[in-house]
Design a protein around this nucleic acid. Structure first.
Lengths: 340, 340
DNA sequence: CTGTTAGCGCTTTCAG
DNA sequence: CTGAAAGCGCTAACAG
């Protein structure tokens, strides 16, 4: 049967309490005798003793586990529908994968036993199920649609850190990628290449939080270059083509997927990337290498962001005030941009 | 403070034992009085009582949680290196994301409270940390490299189901995509289009398990079509070009990434897809739409596979014998294949 | 420095 | 059909 702390105690000739003290390795007022501690550790290792998590959790009131709520990917949004361009859902899974990779790795490095993952579901459900299972929660919201999970959780009872958003209540920290800085980088790159008439392709302010930020980054760069008057945005292919015919030589797209659409539109209109138009995307999604012969884009640091999320949450658990962090992006230059 | 079962009991005018019986909703020899049960449920809901997971786990010896070990994505393999084609790591994360999405959704549907995720680490580490935290474990191995985690776990003590492999010990069930059937579908599609000289591009039998299976599927289709003598494989670009010049009109690539490499090679040699050569990939990765103008490929059902993994593991927990399942793939026809 | 004791919150016999 | 009592395995006070 499974070993109990008492078995180890007997084998080592000490009391269960001593074993506990040695194994938890905590700071005690009066330390444990080094020889005793060593003996206990050796015996525990030899016997292969592993403390029972449930008992420990019950006693201490903590679990040493962190929770993550991932944005739901509903089954009604299949990935890779026959012949159809619906990479958006797949893309979200890519980010989920990167986020999990980042979270998991960081958790391990920081000695957190495990991550409890819960897919977003009916409001409050996650809160109820996770209650008592975790010490703190990371909420990875889907930037493409709002959700109210944060409203259903009490940050006083359960320390919270939100990922992938910059809009959180005071008691909730957050970690997001620096979307605004990213498009700024992209636009500056085009400016450096001599482009002046640069159009932003995207939903912009009318879109979700991140898209609004991305457009602002473009505007920041344009204004800083004294081209504030030339700020243009469209999400209509027809308009884009006429803008290019009217002298625009570069496009900043709000996502790689949008960039792919732009590339296709330009191609149909007989315009070549990058000879006629330079094109920059955002996300550096899997497959960006294949868009427009190799898309220059902004790397979205999902894994890094997630790792920061763990750090931030652990700091929160240690009593530090909520932090608000932006993880820097970086430009990935490929072949879709060229000097004017 | 947090509510205890006793508080509910007092409020409902019954004993804690009764509350427990009602709330766990188990089959008891003599049922609970319907009115009492109803009253207890109502009170519990009104008060917002949630049973303490740790206490319950300790008492029952089960946790209601399933674990998942994900293949490690080491930090030394950054995604999206500057300008470099290293989509492989990113691709794995895509699959991780799909797997998590599938697992999470299935777990929720089956009423499993949560998934505990642990990244693959030093041997035995996962086993030690997960001990006592979960009722069963899904091991998602990285098909690209062997690992010994399965050897460090005792399927008798912890029910195990492996994902993404078809080679597991007797006591361990597994769920994998039908790689062999997938390339068979792809090859049959080319045969139907009139192609006869079809070459397989990949590492094949010399590669990992899945790649060997994929090549076999190609061979199956060729043999079934009476073209067993024309079976050809290469992983060398130069050789591929000369094969095409020698009359080969179609290529089955072992992955979408490989297909992208093929497309590039053919392009450089002045050959067009699909006019000169038809090309089929495997995985339907994010971005496959952009390879060779829209890659015809085999959809890799990662999410479906993961969902099956949960079902299989739950069956295992219910006492059923280990299952071995293959989840069917399906062909996604785009624009990289054409009649001969 | 080490051992004894009590009890975390729940479920489950076993009596009533 | 319901309640009383015991105890899951561990840790934290408090004695020694």
């Amino acid at each position: 049967m499974k070993l109990k702390i008492k078995d180890v105690a007997t084998a080592a000739g000490v009391s269960p309490a001593t074993v506990s003290k040695v194994l938890t390795g905590q700071e005690v007022a009066y330390a444990i005798n080094a020889a005793t501690a060593e003996r206990v550790r050796r015996v525990a290792l030899e016997l292969g003793y592993v403390p029972d998590a449930a008992a420990r959790n019950l006693r201490t009131g903590r679990t040493g586990q962190l929770g993550v709520v991932l944005a739901a990917t509903s089954p009604s949004e299949p990935v890779g529908e026959l012949g159809e361009l619906n990479a958006a859902a797949a893309l979200r899974r890519t980010f989920d994968g990167a986020i999990l990779a980042g979270l998991g790795e960081a958790a391990r490095q920081h000695g957190v036993p495990a991550l409890v993952v819960y897919p977003e579901g009916p409001e409050g459900e996650a809160a109820r199920f996770l209650d008592g299972r975790i010490d703190g929660l990371l909420v990875s919201r889907d930037p493409l649609r709002p959700h109210q999970l944060l409203d259903h959780l009490d940050p006083q009872r359960l320390p919270l850190v939100a990922l992938w958003t910059q809009q959180t209540p005071d008691a909730v920290g957050h970690v997001d990628a620096d979307h605004r800085g990213g498009t700024r980088l992209a636009t500056e790159h085009l400016l450096r290449l001599g482009h002046q008439q640069i159009v932003y392709y995207g939903a912009g302010r009318e879109g979700p939080e991140h898209f609004a930020l991305r457009e602002q980054g473009y505007q920041d760069a344009m204004r800083a270059a004294g081209l504030g008057g030339g700020i243009q945005r469209t999400h209509a292919s027809g308009r884009l083509v006429s803008l290019v015919e009217g002298g625009c030589t570069a496009v900043v797209a709000e996502t790689d997927l949008a960039a792919a659409a732009v590339a296709r539109t330009l191609n149909v209109a007989g315009l070549r990337v990058p000879q006629d138009v330079s094109l920059v995307g955002f996300d550096d999604m899997v497959g960006a290498e294949f868009i427009a012969g190799g898309l220059t884009t902004v790397y979205h640091p999902a894994a890094e962001m997630a790792a920061q999320g763990v750090v931030t949450l652990l700091a929160r658990l240690a009593g530090h005030p909520p932090e608000r962090l932006l993880v820097p992006t970086r430009l990935v230059v490929r072949r879709s941009t060229a000097p004017r």
